[in-house]
Write a protein that binds this DNA or RNA. Sequence first.
DNA 1: AATATATTTGCAACTTAGTTGCAATTTTGT
DNA 2: ACAAAATTGCAACTAAGTTGCAAATATATT
Lengths: 140, 140
Amino acid sequence: MKRNSDLQAHRMLKAAKLYCTKVRIAILKVLMKTDKPLSQEQIAQRSGKKRFDKVTIYRTLESLLKVGLVHKAFIEKRAWHFELAHNCTESQCHPHFTCTNCGSTHCLIEISLPMAKSPHKGFVIHRQQVRLEGLCPACV
Amino acid sequence: MKRNSDLQAHRMLKAAKLYCTKVRIAILKVLMKTDKPLSQEQIAQRSGKKRFDKVTIYRTLESLLKVGLVHKAFIEKRAWHFELAHNCTESQCHPHFTCTNCGSTHCLIEISLPMAKSPHKGFVIHRQQVRLEGLCPACV
DNA sequence: AATATATTTGCAACTTAGTTGCAATTTTGT
DNA sequence: ACAAAATTGCAACTAAGTTGCAAATATATT
């Protein structure tokens, strides 16, 4: 019995011409169920009792990253965090907010800043990431 | 024979009520001489033949960070990078640009984005960091 | 200048995040 | 069901950063 999210994951992988493997589907489902960027450790914890190897998870995330299905978010506590790439344009994702008090991270999808304009010096800007710090509603 | 930069480092530390130690002065001088954020490894390499212990460097940077003399910049290659806090306002530093081709990082001090406005949800934004990706003049 | 106190430093050992090589397994197209 | 291509899991490793503690240094006081 396949669920909606399974089918959706399948579709995403097919569209990206990636093999539909258990790990990839499991990870996509984990990311579909959350609204926060997750570390490999968090993904491992949430992807079912049969814990996948961390190497596999890293490699899976890398393959999903390469085809643009997920994004890497700024580090908190020195670990990369990943999330589905929905709601993001090619050049800009939503800002990520980290609470300096409790350390939690939130995606502020309501906010978007104008893209930085390249200075005359010959830099070509492709992507922009914004990270915000402050107090979350629970800690204000 | 003390140099200008020594005196300046001394003054900065005095003003911040920190002990004027060799490591702190050496690190401040290293950071004064560069316009890019440096990792502890890079700082170690540049702070003279008598290489300071990395623990010491990390702790020194932390003390400088706490009094606001330096800033931590976004990670590249999974390592924190540090730079003098000059040219930064309380709420926003200049954007950091990383070249996706050669991996070099530049401080784009000419650019500044408007501060993000907090959404109504009760988030209080204190600081904003912007990271840019693209091609540097050498790689265009 | 000598001393007492407070702070900082260096060492060793450890943790955490992420990577590499390779053999075994799984997925896909036929 | 089979072969080719891609993915997975394991073990071992690297790189970044941290902790505890004893020794060394900086500062203020005499």
